[in-house]
Amino acid sequence: MGGAMDISTKGLLFAAIFLVALLALVWLKGGRKILIKSTVSMIRMTIQLSLVGIYLTWMFKINNPWLNVGWIVVMIGAANLSILNHSGLSKRLFPAIFMALAITLFVVLSWFMVFVFMPENPTDARLLIPIAGMLLGNSMNRTIVTTERFYSSILQNEDTFAVSLAMGATVREAAMPFFRESYRAGLAPVLANYAAMGLVSIPGMMTGAILGGSSPSIAVKYQIVIVVAIFAATEIATLLSILFILSKAFLKNGMPNRDMFT
């Protein structure tokens, strides 16, 4: 791969001008609250990515396997907190979600590093960190959507859930119809996105690889493999998260433990 085309300071300035114009439009149409939210999220994103840029440059230079794995553990912790915050689950479920994400990343990353990408050094930061980030980001979003929908539908239909228990269902059996519905609902937009890939959207990773000097055929190969890895990671993470939480978020009599939901 050749070096990526750099963006000049002037180019960044023009991007900022465009953003300010856009925020003005947001303010006019959406009001002050949405303007503040949009501005804060844009500034936050810029600061976070700038810091990551500095940090990753340093990590790529050192390229220590323990440091790389340590960074992935930090990423899992951050994704975990985000899942708990956005899905309305108690912080007491941190270990269960952490376990689900850690197993997912270990299985998917090991498989793709050892058998698919086959780099000389499987813990190479340049490959390991960005791929782990992509897998984790997608797993996080999917887990939030599915777990939130799963538990809120059980709480909203507590009587139906209770009747299943009364008829002899275990927690897992009583929860299965709710899981299926939330799983389907979470999967539908993902499949629609995959179906439109290449026709409607050119995926970000592929665009990045082409801009970085890769030939489109190599970029496409990477993109296909990454989509498969993301699909595997999101499905495993979702299934494991719900499986692990099932044993923690329900009382001995099978009813949902409301202390586990915020």
Binding site: N157, D159, T160, A162, V163, S164, L165, A166, M167, G168, A169, T170, E173, P177, E181
Partner: peptide
């Protein structure tokens, strides 16, 4: 629970469930 059959006041079948599937559902439990 294995000693009791229970008919609740409000009955909520699952979406797209046929009468047969609704009646058979408890028999799918181990």
């Amino acid at each position: 629970r294995q000693q009791i059959s229970y008919l609740p006041q409000a009955i909520h079948p699952f979406k797209e469930e046929s009468v047969f599937d609704f009646i058979m559902r408890p028999f799918s439990y181990k």
